[in-house]
Write a protein that binds this DNA or RNA. Structure first.
Lengths: 142, 142
DNA sequence: TTAGGTGCAAATGATTTGCAATAAT
DNA sequence: ATTATTGCAAATCATTTGCACCTAA
């Protein structure tokens, strides 16, 4: 018996979402896969530039928009007045140091339990959520 | 025995934070006290205008900034690319309908429990948090 | 070929800033 | 009187849009 192991690929993900495969799109997907912290548009663009891909900022925004529309990435806000993006599989919560700006991760799935309660109490169907903590990281408490 | 009941007053709150009492500041405090949903700068300004107070937008932003700096109000983001503000005592979480934009409240204090755990596990001192749910409200599920 | 993707330049929207005039204590 | 606060106008920053050109399928 032969088992086909689904080899993960940015290109395949794009195709699976009926999106044309372009260098800029591959670059964005790759980058978001490689980083542990959610990244903003500017950071993403600069990384692509390093790899010799030079899309217009408008293109980056359009790509981020379509990818989050397809659910491949998540658009989040961390109280900075701009958006950050993360690969959907990387979803987790953050600890944002209000002093130095450091962003740490917290893995916690307690929120999932709440969604059922909300459905019952409020009749609201939760599709996604954000949970962020602001405060002082270890280094900034002195 | 005479009991002094602390009569809540916007002016007193301002004074207690060493802020000068001005019409615009009173107006902002009053408005945020009167509404159940977090409001954006534009909405706040329009309300003040109705009451005959006509500050410049820049003044509104400066007031919102100083009030949140003093902890009298909270600055939050609901995925709209702008900030909203709420009276600190009104802190709660929101259900944001991604279809019609309706904002509902959820009262829940389960998050408080987490802050202790985060302190232990991550050494991170939580000062505030945000928890928002995105999905479809009752009306928009059909 | 052709629908979808991109570059460029200009527009938008929220928020911020410098500075001089003004009002709260 | 003194210092904080405000108004005004201009600047900034992130993001969006119109349109002509280009490219992946």
């Amino acid at each position: 018996m032969i088992t086909f192991i689904k080899q993960h690929s940015c290109k395949d993900e794009l195709k699976a979402s009926n999106l044309k495969v372009t260098p800029a799109r591959i670059g964005v997907m790759r980058f978001l896969e490689s980083v542990s912290k959610p990244a903003d548009a500017e950071t993403i663009l600069k990384d692509l530039n390093k790899e010799g891909i030079n899309p217009d900022p408008a293109t980056i925004y359009r790509i981020l928009d379509i990818l989050s529309g397809k659910g491949l990435i998540q658009k989040i806000e961390l109280g900075e007045g701009k958006y950050r993006y993360e690969k959907s599989e990387n979803h987790h919560h953050h600890l944002i140091c209000t002093n130095c700006g450091k962003i740490e991760d917290v893995k916690a799935d307690f929120v999932s339990n709440l969604e059922g309660q909300i459905r019952e109490k409020n009749g609201f169907l939760v599709k996604s959520h954000s949970l962020e903590f602001f405060g002082l990281c270890k280094n900034c408490q002195n």
